[in-house]
């Protein structure tokens, strides 16, 4: 086992607020790592720092042995680290298929001139991207909605589409920010199974933020717990669940643990 992602001393200040301070953790290759914590714990901020959406105030992000902190997001994805967003996860007026094509084009790029004046290579790129999409739509059970406008989908489907766009970029590590938010318990279970299947099929490592504890405990190999921007615990689901600091953090935040 080796770590695909190593977060070292990561920190972020927003003015006076330390949204994240000196956070260290690793995500193992081929595993599902959970990142949990009460609302405002700094989970999304952590994702934003890892993917270059925000500039870190301190620390390093080692991805496959390379420090990617400071790279713009599109360079991070190019290296095989994709992410989904907690909200506004789609291109709302484009079709589901078109949404995914836009992610898939990353692996089928053409030169500047060809992209302007068209021609064979541009057409081939789009066709190849469209082929990838078929596979991804199938894996996320979105094929039936291929021609629907993304903004008209149910919330849960939009979240799934967000995952599909990320997956279309062919990542080695996929960061998911509350992908099961807004789903009912039955759908959450379905999503969990879908995710483990995806992981096998696309040889993924996953780092997931979720508030559905039952899902997290079921699918994660390893869990990191944040509270007030600091890491307060990490370990196997069994260990984390029993950790008094974790229980206190969640009770203190009056968060319902299903």
């Amino acid at each position: 086992m080796s770590a695909i992602l190593k977060v070292e001393g990561l920190g972020k200040r927003f003015g006076g607020l330390a949204a994240l301070s000196d956070v260290h953790f690793e995500a193992e290759e081929g595993q599902i790592t959970g990142l949990i914590g009460p609302n405002g714990a700094g989970k999304t901020t952590c994702f934003n720092l890892i993917t270059g959406t925000l500039a870190a105030s301190a620390g390093r992000v080692m991805f496959r042995g390379e420090n990617i902190a400071g790279l713009p997001p599109h360079r991070v994805v190019e290296r095989g680290l994709a992410r989904t967003f907690q909200s506004a996860t789609t291109f709302p007026t484009a079709s589901v298929r078109e949404n995914i094509v836009r992610g898939a084009l990353l692996r089928h790029q053409v030169g500047t001139l060809a992209s302007i004046i068209g021609g064979g290579s541009a057409r081939d790129a789009v066709r190849a991207a469209e082929e990838t999409v078929v596979d991804v739509m199938d894996a996320l059970e979105l094929t039936a909605y291929a021609d629907r406008e993304a903004g008209t989908l149910a919330y849960g489907h939009q979240k799934r589409l967000g995952v599909a766009i990320g997956l279309a970029t062919r990542p080695a590590l996929l960061l998911l920010d509350e992908p099961a938010a807004g789903l009912n318990p039955e759908e959450v279970d379905r999503f969990g199974s879908m995710l483990t299947t995806l992981q096998q099929r696309f040889h993924l490592s996953v780092l997931i933020v979720e508030h559905h504890m039952r899902l997290i405990m079921r699918i994660c190999d390893h869990i990191v717990v944040l509270h007030h921007g600091e890491k307060i615990a990490e370990g196997s689901p069994g260990m984390v669940q029993k950790d008094p600091r974790v229980i206190e953090a969640y009770l203190g935040a009056e968060h319902h643990v299903e």
Partner: peptide
Amino acid sequence: ALAESSGI
């Protein structure tokens, strides 16, 4: 934001 994070 999504475009940038999709590699654009």
